[in-house]
Simulated assay, not measured.
Amino acid sequence: MMTSIDPSLLISNKHSTTSTGNSSLGKDEFLKILMSQLQNQDPLNPMEDKEFIAQMAQFSTLEQTTNMSTMLEKFIKTQTQSDSILKYSEMIGKQVEWKATEETGNGIVKSIKQSDTGIILELDNGEEITNDSITKISKAE
Rank of each mutant, 00 (worst) to 15 (best):
residue 90 E to I: 04
residue 90 E to Q: 10
residue 91 M to K: 10
residue 91 M to V: 07
residue 91 M to F: 11
residue 91 M to N: 07
residue 91 M to L: 13
residue 91 M to P: 00
residue 92 I to S: 14
residue 92 I to F: 14
residue 93 G to A: 07
residue 93 G to C: 11
residue 93 G to L: 08
residue 93 G to D: 03
residue 93 G to V: 09
residue 93 G to T: 08
residue 93 G to Q: 10
residue 94 K to W: 06
residue 95 Q to A: 06
residue 95 Q to W: 07
residue 95 Q to H: 12
residue 95 Q to K: 08
residue 96 V to D: 08
residue 96 V to H: 08
residue 97 E to A: 13
residue 97 E to F: 14
residue 98 W to H: 08
residue 98 W to L: 07
residue 98 W to E: 08
residue 99 K to A: 12
residue 99 K to Y: 06
residue 100 A to H: 13
residue 100 A to I: 12
residue 100 A to F: 14
residue 100 A to R: 15
residue 101 T to P: 00
residue 102 E to L: 15
residue 102 E to T: 15
residue 102 E to S: 15
residue 102 E to H: 14
residue 102 E to G: 14
residue 103 E to W: 07
residue 104 T to A: 05
residue 104 T to N: 08
residue 104 T to D: 00
residue 105 G to C: 06
residue 105 G to Q: 05
residue 105 G to W: 06
residue 106 N to P: 00
residue 106 N to V: 00
residue 106 N to Y: 01
residue 107 G to S: 05
residue 107 G to D: 05
residue 107 G to F: 05
residue 108 I to Q: 10
residue 108 I to S: 09
residue 108 I to F: 09
residue 109 V to S: 12
residue 109 V to Y: 09
residue 110 K to D: 15
residue 110 K to H: 10
residue 110 K to N: 12
residue 111 S to K: 08
residue 111 S to C: 10
residue 111 S to R: 09
residue 112 I to N: 00
residue 113 K to P: 04
residue 113 K to L: 10
residue 113 K to E: 11
residue 114 Q to R: 10
residue 114 Q to S: 13
residue 116 D to R: 06
residue 116 D to W: 01
residue 116 D to Q: 08
residue 117 T to I: 11
residue 118 G to E: 01
residue 118 G to D: 02
residue 119 I to V: 06
residue 119 I to C: 03
residue 119 I to S: 01
residue 119 I to Y: 02
residue 119 I to D: 02
residue 121 L to Y: 01
residue 121 L to W: 01
residue 121 L to S: 01
residue 122 E to D: 14
residue 122 E to P: 07
residue 122 E to L: 14
residue 122 E to Q: 15
residue 122 E to S: 15
residue 123 L to A: 06
residue 124 D to F: 02
residue 125 N to S: 03
residue 125 N to R: 02
residue 125 N to Y: 01
residue 126 G to H: 10
residue 126 G to I: 09
residue 126 G to K: 13
residue 126 G to E: 12
residue 126 G to R: 12
residue 127 E to V: 04
residue 128 E to R: 04
residue 129 I to Q: 00
residue 129 I to W: 05
residue 130 T to M: 05
residue 131 N to L: 01
residue 131 N to F: 00
residue 131 N to K: 05
residue 132 D to T: 05
residue 132 D to Q: 03
residue 132 D to R: 00
residue 132 D to H: 04
residue 133 S to V: 15
residue 133 S to Y: 11
residue 133 S to F: 11
residue 133 S to W: 12
residue 133 S to M: 12
residue 134 I to L: 10
residue 134 I to A: 06
residue 134 I to E: 05
residue 134 I to F: 07
residue 135 T to Q: 04
residue 136 K to Q: 04
residue 136 K to T: 03
